[in-house]
Design a protein around this nucleic acid. Sequence first.
DNA 1: CCAAAAGTGTTATTGATACACCCATGC
DNA 2: GCATGGGTGTATCAATAACACTTTTGG
Lengths: 226, 226
Amino acid sequence: MNTNKIDWESLHNKFLLTVDVLIFTIDHEDLKVLLVKRAHEPFKGFWAIPGGFLKLKESLDIAALRVAKEKTGIKEVYLEQLYTFGALDRNTSVRAITVAYFSLIPYLKLKKPVSDKISDLQWFYVHKLPKLGFDHEIILKTAILRLKSKVGYSNIAFNLLSDKFRLSELQRIYEVILEKNLDKRNFRKQILATGLLSSTGKKELREAHRPAMLYRFKSKNVVYFD
Amino acid sequence: MNTNKIDWESLHNKFLLTVDVLIFTIDHEDLKVLLVKRAHEPFKGFWAIPGGFLKLKESLDIAALRVAKEKTGIKEVYLEQLYTFGALDRNTSVRAITVAYFSLIPYLKLKKPVSDKISDLQWFYVHKLPKLGFDHEIILKTAILRLKSKVGYSNIAFNLLSDKFRLSELQRIYEVILEKNLDKRNFRKQILATGLLSSTGKKELREAHRPAMLYRFKSKNVVYFD
DNA sequence: CCAAAAGTGTTATTGATACACCCATGC
DNA sequence: GCATGGGTGTATCAATAACACTTTTGG
């Protein structure tokens, strides 16, 4: 069997196969997602999850990484496959299958506002969303649910902070994702008990309160708890 | 934008998009998976996970259901999307993307041995597997892991039993999936505490021991615990 | 009466939750 | 000295884990 001999017509292979990437970050307010304003039909003018067509010589993971890099300018990002959406009515024109990924980015790595020129790329608070095209509201909800549940049994949320941080910052990340307040003492006990953090020994100064000890992650590799 | 005008060549859309379905059941021994012997290249003669090409007018879920029905003859099966596999080296010839699902079937619904004629369809204990084609060992491992973890926080395992059953049967299902023995008293306490079972009031007789109370699931809808 | 699976409660351990005050710094 | 967030320990409660004997039936 040779690639050249395949009769693609007969394989009923007329799908668009796209990879969409939900790019999340958490600022001092809330969870944010990066959206693009569509320049073409269908859903021209609507906001949508960034994505692209899968290339022939590209794995799904690499395609997702490419999209994430293109939009954020960051080379190393946390990426995880979310779900594949393939209902019949999810696109208005052509049959499209989308493999959705989500990505977590530390807010501090985004100092330069993402693509000044391209104003059709914009961060939105997930609780203040515009109208989205396609079935992207469903995809976004799926991603937020996954994030919320996975935070409970893994260290996935570490990927929303850069190397040095205060425990109170980490706690805020968890509070934003879980949408509830946590007890400071219990949080510290538990997070330190995982053994995944180490103190840098340094303290953050120049603020009008007692300086906080800075911690770092021993590794950002995802670890699953019981 | 009109479907007829799409230039499929230019979209680099030369993928095979398949839907593979891992069909599981548990007999008196262990967890089993249904495999097919491949009649054609690539991997001719190897055993593989049943699957098929996605049809143009068919959602992913429906495609998976079709495959599951074809192979088991059962209309209503539990199905769940597992993961989408799209590495470059997963197939020897053509670029193929596979959306994998898994399905759980009560052993008793399989009374008639699946497709007598088609001896290239066969159940295998997941701990006594033949050599599999493609990347199907990885897919299978992924599925087993998912099943194992999900049993811990959902009632997904209910789908491996038919309507009436003894608590000891249910316990065996859990033990097989978790690959460890459970304490009878604790298991009963916990499973009854979910409120998802109800006693039928009837007992199973004609066995050389004290007859067991038969239970049923109030619903097989998947419920997630904390 | 023997074999085989059904059924049943209590205790100990562990993990999760609730809760309030002093500390170090900048201004 | 006051405002601000940093840092710390204990007691209660809930969930989980460990553990052994009696019961009912068929043969």
